[in-house]
Amino acid sequence: MEIRKIAGATPHGVGLNNIDDSPGPCCMSFGFDLKPLILSIDTIGLINSPVLIESGQGKMTIIAGFRRVQAFKYLKRDEIPCRILLENSVSHLECILINLHDNLSTRKLNDVEKGMVLSRLSLYLPESEILEHYMPLLDLPSRRETLFLFMALESEPDVFVKESVVRGSLSLKTFKRLLKMDHESRTHVLNLLSSLKFNSNQQTQLFEYLIDLKHIHDKSLSELLGDISIKRILSDENLNMPQKAKAVLGFFRSKRFPTLADAESTFRKKVSRLGLPKGVKIVQSRFFEAPYHRLEIRFREGEDLKKKIEQLTRSDRLETLRDPWEEGG
């Protein structure tokens, strides 16, 4: 059968009992929510019929439409209109392409699903063709490292990890790092990431600190994450999730940059001792790299500004704010 003819094939009612329950070898669905589709089918019926292939002994295997079949089953229907391919009339690659294009025409694939597509295609197509043609189709850069990363995501055995990537609570960058970790470290990291809500940037930052500290102190990630201070932060009932995430990051930052953290703390103390008027702030340059600080004054009107400037000029404590790195100072 010519692959293009499938679009014009007439759907026939197929008993749900005759359809293999498994997602099928071409399925590219992961981490989906069936409810909107159930509601849609229940409200206006099936618009696009699934594609099945005869698999012998009267059973049908799903080529495209696993979710639709699932929705029909949920709605306790007896039959579903399907287009049927005869056994051996299409190649396995053609079945995969039918599924891929059927999906691409209606929705965006998540990262795990993209990995499923690439893994399946890689069984039949040369790498160069996947890079050149299919990666752009999936909105991915045509790079080998991206291809291998997505394929590794597909073959990841831990469903929790896959679900976390799909939910966005585990960034792809973090997933890439997990691949290189030993089991214990990986477990520690996943526990931390699942108990606290780090955003993608925070995850990147956390790993920067952890990997640097691992090298500096020759400690494993499990040892670093098992620090008593981390346990205290995690069990602190006065902190909410984002505050805990911030505190954990702050802890590792001060471990990674002790001199900088100390300088920042000293600076903050010095500034707080200046007794600045309300709405006036002194901000250090980024990492103290530029030799200047910045004075910020929040004011309503000129009179207010004048008052604050006068207060500042009368302060005899401003002179105590000196260059922190002067020799002997």
Binding site: D212, R256, P258, R286, F288, E289, W325
Partner: peptide, 27 residues
């Protein structure tokens, strides 16, 4: 061990040692 120090982003976008560490080395 070259990455073990306290590097911050300098004004030119490159990473360099935090200023007091550089000052110690140079002095």
């Amino acid at each position: 061990c070259v990455l073990n120090g306290e590097f911050i982003m300098g004004l030119d976008g490159k990473m360099r040692y935090f200023k007091p560490i550089r000052l110690d080395l140079y002095r």
